Amino acid sequence: MKIYLMVAAVGALAACQPVVPDSAAGVGNPGRGVGFNTTTATAVPAAPGVSSQPLGGTAPATTSSANGSFDPDLLAASLDEDERAAAANSGREVVNASPSNPAPAAVSNPGISDENDFDAVAARQTIASDKARIAENRAQYEVVQPTALPSRSDAGGPNVVEYALQTRHPRGTKIHPRLGFGGQSKMARNCAVYTNDDEAQTDFLARGGPKRDRKGLDPDGDGYACGWDPTPYRRAAAN
């Protein structure tokens, strides 16, 4: 009786133990195993020339020929309809890298000059043609003879350039007498209305300068209003 009870207890304990899945189960075997994809076969990557065989599934078409080289026809046969359409729409033929591939054909670009290519230039130009081209260019030369400069009209008023070339003394040299008090303050006030010193000198000459200074633009009597400097014009004429 005790032996019978012990056998029954061992059987009950064995029935309670979890079932350990087979190591090959769950891979390519739907409905078996835990933590494995039970609907999709998993392919094992293969070396080039060796077909890839999914565990528990059907082997895909090989992309290698009998001698182990890549066969594009076999590759196309192994692609589905969408993949074939994508490859056909690429617009380019697939080129597989191989030492036996021929060298690519050189395509001439007409936009690039061939002046540095001796053979190309020599094929279309000779010493005689160069001589004829030089003679043609010389025949088109046109020599323009210089003409006299037009005379300046006095309608535009005094000319500061002409005045600068007529004078020789530097700034600050008193040439003309000046009367009045507060000459510097008056000059600063009246010179502020001009945009530049050339404009001030032109107006100064137009109002009777350099002998007369009605607006007090030249208190030191050097004949240059508002600090105008004739030196740049003199240097330009000398050069």
Rank of each mutant, 00 (worst) to 15 (best):
L149S: 11
N116R: 15
S151R: 14
T167W: 03
T40K: 00
A25F: 01
A43V: 11
A86H: 08
G33N: 09
P99C: 05
P146H: 07
V50S: 01
G31Y: 08
R212M: 08
G182L: 09
R92W: 10
D117S: 15
E136F: 13
A8F: 08
L5P: 00
Q125H: 15
S52G: 11
C191N: 05
M1F: 12
D229S: 09
N67T: 12
E199D: 11
R214Y: 01
S98H: 07
G172I: 02
D213A: 01
L179E: 11
K131S: 11
Y194E: 01
V10H: 06
A24K: 00
A46G: 06
Y163K: 06
D218L: 03
A61C: 04
Y194S: 03
F36P: 11
N196D: 13
S69C: 06
A85G: 07
M187K: 08
F204M: 02
G209E: 04
G172N: 04
Y233K: 15
A135P: 02
L205D: 04
G221C: 03
A25P: 06
N239Q: 14
N137E: 12
Q145S: 14
A206Q: 12
G221I: 02
A200T: 03
S113L: 05
G157I: 01
Q140V: 04
Y224P: 01
A43E: 04
G156T: 13
A225M: 04
A103S: 13
A14L: 14
V121I: 00
P230Y: 06
N89T: 09
D82F: 08
D82G: 09
A139R: 08
M187V: 04
P150S: 04
R235W: 06
A59N: 09
G172P: 05
A106P: 15
E199A: 12
N159Q: 04
K215A: 14
A9N: 02
V20A: 10
A14G: 14
D198A: 10
D197M: 04
D22S: 13
T167N: 02
L5R: 10
S108H: 10
G68H: 02
E142L: 07
P104T: 10
P60K: 04
P60D: 01
S98A: 07
P21Q: 09
A148L: 15
N101E: 13
S129G: 00
V95G: 05
G182R: 07
A25L: 05
R124D: 08
Y224S: 05
S52C: 05
L75N: 00
S108Q: 10
V160Y: 05
P99G: 08
R235T: 07
K174P: 10
P48A: 05
Q140N: 06
E81M: 09
T126G: 12
K174H: 10
V144F: 12
V27A: 13
P232M: 11
N137Y: 11
P177Q: 00
R124Y: 10
